[in-house]
Simulated assay, not measured.
Amino acid sequence: MKKTLTLRPASEREDAPKLQRKGRGWNIAESRLDAIHELARERKRNPSAAQVALADELAKEDLGQYKPKSFTVIGSAIANFACLPLKLVVLIDEGDVPAEIEHRRDKSLTEVGIKVVRYTAEEVLADPEGISRDTVAAMKARYEELRANSRPANRSYGAPRR
């Protein structure tokens, strides 16, 4: 009998387990992780129209080392675009995954310090340039946020030493 992914009713569920970040797949079975990577490769070979539109617009931007990579596997999630140095993920909601699963995925990514930016496919197709601008703005904001958090709080820059 073929197993299918189902969700138990909310009353019967406990919180999602903490990601342990062990080994290749954050404590995910190798066979499951291999299947996730194969699915990511398949999506990269056959992207949706919204993914192509946003990829084309992001390719026009000069982002240097912070260029987002498409269809990146992070844990058990496949990000449409991920900028790992900035710990930022862009997801395009195609409507094929239940909202509850997406919410749990977003929560798991957020718990390990990854910022999730989500757009619907309709938004991307309607205004890919605007979504690209919003994504670049989110990347710049994330850069500033990470930069501010990495500085020591008690040091004043530019003050003369005695």
Rank of each mutant, 00 (worst) to 15 (best):
E30S: 13
L63S: 01
E14T: 14
K22C: 09
G25N: 14
G95E: 07
D34T: 11
R13K: 14
E38C: 05
G25W: 08
L39C: 09
N80E: 10
L84C: 03
R43S: 05
A82K: 07
E42F: 10
D56S: 02
E94L: 03
L39P: 01
C83S: 12
R41I: 05
L19Y: 11
V97R: 14
K18N: 10
E57V: 00
A59S: 10
K87Q: 12
I36D: 09
D15Q: 13
E61P: 00
R13V: 11
N27Q: 14
I36E: 04
P17K: 12
R45C: 02
R13Q: 15
L33D: 09
A77M: 07
Q20H: 14
V73N: 05
V89N: 06
V52R: 10
E42V: 09
A50F: 05
A50K: 03
Y66A: 01
G64H: 01
G95I: 07
D15M: 08
T72G: 01
I78M: 03
R41M: 13
K18R: 15
D34R: 15
K22V: 14
D96L: 08
A53S: 10
E94C: 06
D62N: 12
I36P: 11
E61R: 13
E38G: 06
Y66V: 00
A50W: 03
R41S: 15
L58S: 02
A35G: 15
T72I: 09
L86G: 08
L33A: 10
E42N: 12
A55M: 01
R41V: 05
R24M: 09
I28Y: 08
S76R: 13
F81N: 02
K87V: 01
Y66T: 00
S31C: 07
R43D: 03
I92E: 01
A16S: 15
N80K: 06
E57M: 08
K44L: 04
D96R: 12
I74A: 02
L54E: 02
L58A: 00
F81M: 04
K18G: 00
D93W: 09
R43Y: 07
P47S: 08
G64D: 02
W26M: 11
L19I: 12
S76T: 11
E57L: 01
L39Q: 13
S70W: 04
L84N: 07
H37G: 04
G23D: 11
G95T: 05
G75D: 07
K18I: 13
L86H: 10
K87H: 13
K22H: 12
A50G: 07
R43C: 05
D96A: 10
Q20S: 14
A79L: 09
L88P: 07
N80A: 11
S48G: 09
H37Y: 15
K69I: 00
I92F: 06
Q65K: 10
V73H: 10
K60V: 00
Q51N: 08
A53I: 03
V90L: 09
R32D: 14
K67N: 00
N27S: 15
D34C: 09
V73F: 08
A53K: 09
E38T: 11
S31Y: 07
R32M: 13
L19S: 15
A55K: 08
K67Y: 09
K69L: 08
R13S: 11
E14R: 15
R45F: 04
A82M: 13
V90N: 04
R43P: 06
A77T: 08
L91F: 07
A55Q: 05
G25V: 06
E61C: 02
A59E: 13
L88D: 02
Q20V: 10
K18F: 05
R21N: 15
